[in-house]
Design a protein around this nucleic acid. Structure first.
Lengths: 213, 213
DNA sequence: CCTACCGATCGGTAGG
DNA sequence: CCTACCGATCGGTAGG
């Protein structure tokens, strides 16, 4: 096989090809931290938390194996940071589309569309990680995420209750919310931006399914 | 601390306390295999595939660390067996409740109720493992499971199409199926048999949400 | 942020 | 199905 010729048989640890070193004033740690977060979100989503090593994350951003621990206390702190970032950005997006004066049906449409944007738009890895890897959080971390989730869900409650009161939603508002979140969140398993159905199509389908318009 | 007195400081590997040995004629390997499968399903569901070691599974059924490999070729073959068993039993349950002559709306109710039974009744660990751990299958294994899934879903297609044609389902039948499966499957994350809502309540809520009855 | 390393754990196997 | 073991990998750390 000529392995000895094809590639050197001694493999000293290679310096990963990072971006050129910056001087002390130039480097901003926030950026590096953010890079690690993005790479971690991507890998946690694709391979799961337990299926991703901190070495995988380090090499995805051109660092050596121990270096992520300079930025994050532990692997699980990194997981928490991914989820927290995902929730903060989802809450912010949601608050931007809310129009409290609108009809409940229009508000629901906006909430659904914003939810799909969170799941499938840029930064799309963060929320799926939260949806599928909470098991790997500590109890304290889980409580922190749960609080953000309650904040997110709070916007949906009055809308669904109004729709139930007017008969447009023909289901208990609380169970309906759980079922609706399931329907939307599950799209992570099948939605493909390259296929025929767009996010607008899927939003239409969801609105039709839930309240018939 | 008197550790030397409290417990022997040398810990030779202890024989796990299995059931008493049976003679050659008595032992039936199918039973042991089934026990391993159940324990694996439970652990894979609680801790994930990557978070469960084959040693965890072995000790859950009172075996030594290498022994599961006497029954299963590899850890991933064990995962596949869990999923296959889950799908076969789901397909069988579903075929038992089907009544092709019924009204589409009644058929949908039966499909939904049977789906909830599969997710939350006895043997409830198998399908959630399939829903959440497919990533850890090989491509070939994934294809095998996908075939069973298509078989399962086939029963839903004509029912949903009939409901869409009659206007009872106000959504594209294909997207509706994906959204509905999501709504139902997500219940794995929140349904608790010890809480107020029963599976009948949740079935009613789903029927109301999707087709208003 | 790199270097060099540690103890623990893992999937899997040969041989009985 | 147990015994005894292997090579690989993992999260994390001290010291610079």
């Amino acid at each position: 096989m000529c392995a000895a010729l094809a590639s050197p048989s001694i493999d000293p640890p290679k310096r990963p090809r990072g971006r050129p070193r910056k001087t002390l004033d130039e480097r901003d740690e926030g950026n590096r931290r953010q890079e690690i977060l993005k790479a971690a979100a991507r890998l946690f989503r694709r391979r799961g938390f337990d299926g991703t090593s901190t070495r995988d994350i380090a090499s995805a951003v051109g660092m050596h194996s121990g270096s992520p621990f300079y930025h994050f206390e532990s692997k699980s702190a990194l997981l928490y940071a991914v989820m927290e970032e995902g929730m903060r950005s989802a809450i912010e997006r949601q608050s931007r589309v809310l129009r409290p004066g609108d009809e409940p049906a229009d508000q629901l449409r906006r909430l659904i569309r914003s939810h799909f944007d969170t799941l499938h738009g840029p930064g799309r890895d963060f929320i799926p990680v939260m949806l599928y890897e909470s098991r790997s959080l500590t109890a304290r971390q889980r409580a922190g995420i749960a609080k953000l989730q309650r904040e997110y869900e709070a916007a949906w409650v009055p809308v669904l209750e109004a729709l139930a009161a007017s008969g447009q939603l023909r289901s208990d508002a609380h169970l309906a919310r759980l079922l609706i979140f399931g329907a939307l969140n599950w799209s992570v398993q099948w939605f493909d931006a390259k296929k025929r159905a767009s996010l607008d199509d899927v939003t239409d389908a969801a609105m039709g399914l839930f309240i018939g318009r």
